[in-house]
């Protein structure tokens, strides 16, 4: 798994490559926690090159969403592949997580 971090108008963007599973999710969790501790409030996760997600990945996303809510921030997910999106739907996460088609759209919503 590869994670690239960038910043646009005070929004932290994380571009994920590869697989987000129980083996790789601690790496993402650490990056997100570090960013929040560094004052990040609004975040975008770009899933365009994410091939796979398991419940371990969903857990990190749920936890981050809650942590950001507490500081009046927000997390938006974007550019999800169909298989990955189906996992969010089965878990019922699509009912409370904003999922949009592109990074630009995500940024414009924050």
């Amino acid at each position: 798994m590869e994670i690239i971090e960038s910043k646009q108008n005070e929004i932290n963007i994380f571009t994920l490559h590869g697989r987000l599973d129980s083996n790789t999710s601690p790496e993402l969790e650490k990056k997100l926690v570090d960013a929040m501790e560094g004052g990040a409030r609004n975040m975008v996760l770009d899933f365009e090159n994410l091939d796979y997600i398991s419940s371990a990945g969903l857990r990190i996303i749920l936890k981050t969403t809650k942590d950001l809510k507490r500081t009046e921030g927000a997390l938006i997910l974007c550019a999800m592949q169909d298989y990955v999106k189906e996992v969010f739907e089965i878990a019922g996460f699509d009912s409370f997580l904003p999922i949009v088609p592109t990074v630009d759209e995500a940024v414009s919503k924050l």
Binding site: S54, S55, R59, L62, K63, K66, V87, I90, A91
Partner: peptide, 11 residues
Amino acid sequence: NCKIGGLGLHI
């Protein structure tokens, strides 16, 4: 609340 154990089995 963060009690979402069982999510994996649900999937």
